[in-house]
Write a protein that binds this DNA or RNA. Sequence first.
DNA 1: AGTAGAATCGGACTGCGGGTCCGTTTCGAT
DNA 2: ATCGAAACGGACCCGCAGTCCGATTCTACT
Lengths: 192, 192
Amino acid sequence: MPEPSTRKDAVRNRKAVLAAADALFDRSGNPEEVTMADVAAAAGVGKGTLFRAFGDRNGLLLALYEHRIEPIRQTVQAGPPPLGPDTPARERVPALLDALLRFKLDNRRLALALEETGSTSPYLAAHYEDWHSLLRSALEQIPGLTDNSEFTAHVLLAAIRADLVEYLAGHKGVPREEMHAQLARFTAGVLR
Amino acid sequence: MPEPSTRKDAVRNRKAVLAAADALFDRSGNPEEVTMADVAAAAGVGKGTLFRAFGDRNGLLLALYEHRIEPIRQTVQAGPPPLGPDTPARERVPALLDALLRFKLDNRRLALALEETGSTSPYLAAHYEDWHSLLRSALEQIPGLTDNSEFTAHVLLAAIRADLVEYLAGHKGVPREEMHAQLARFTAGVLR
DNA sequence: AGTAGAATCGGACTGCGGGTCCGTTTCGAT
DNA sequence: ATCGAAACGGACCCGCAGTCCGATTCTACT
């Protein structure tokens, strides 16, 4: 990410901001109450620096997200089954959803903040398209689902949206394994 | 809604505000850019009046929503099949989802505004609980779905969330009937 | 009809957060 | 050591939800 010719104070500050934001978002219950000024202060940096490095609030959230999701992305793209590309679709679909659910449980605040961001619908984010098309092409390889795969992929992703996960896990107190089990059961039903 | 002893100017202003808000939300593409000041101005009323009548932005949105959804609510509660209580669950579930999808298509801006409202997750709204428990109890009457009905109801409702509907219908240009068809196909699959 | 006083009105005002601006500081190439 | 360029940082601006309180309008009572 850091360009070859970037001044080292810029690099240092970028890291400081990422670390501070990372900590702040996980700590607070409601991500909306973490302000940009807070992040800048916690990182020991001015607001100007913060905004120059990440553009806007959404840019910061995105950078955090990409950093955290990287391992999963890698595994999906070139790793072993059940996530990697060599997995039969029937196993890969539930595995993908399971991994994403685990990610959202592990990164609830961040995922929430990312999907909330008022004006920007989560469906317009670049990474949504990625996950959707991956899931969709997996679904297309399963006989009997090829016709409605587009919509089915949307619904399966909607089943693990950050605010739903937060509601069930955080508000309703549904335990982790229970959520995984319910999602697996539902997915199995859809895949018939 | 207006208490027996409410001054008539208050009643008049309340109606004016509702009418103005109704029009404004439907007109603008992005509901976030309709400000409370706009609504007050369009209604020919001061901001103080607006806030006294509805509490806050969310209160206004809710009042609008309840006004518009009332016919559906009535039909569901005491109307004829396929929405009313005498409908066999197997037909009622898809009918409910279809009606809600139609509602969201017809009231896109409003539904969006209602589900966005930053800090307040849609899952904490009173009406979500209502629809969820209705759908869930219908699902429970279908053999083979009784175990996972809770989660299944959440997912089916997630399939018609306002921002997803807006994304598909508005951004991707999926026509109405196509959306209804896709939802019906998916639901049929889930109900097996 | 007239009047008192309570409820409502309305727009100036506050608080707050995202985002910008620009004088000052730091970097690194020569 | 020097100089131009890039980065810094915090004062500043802007827009919006929500509040406050003096002015206004309604209604109950005579």
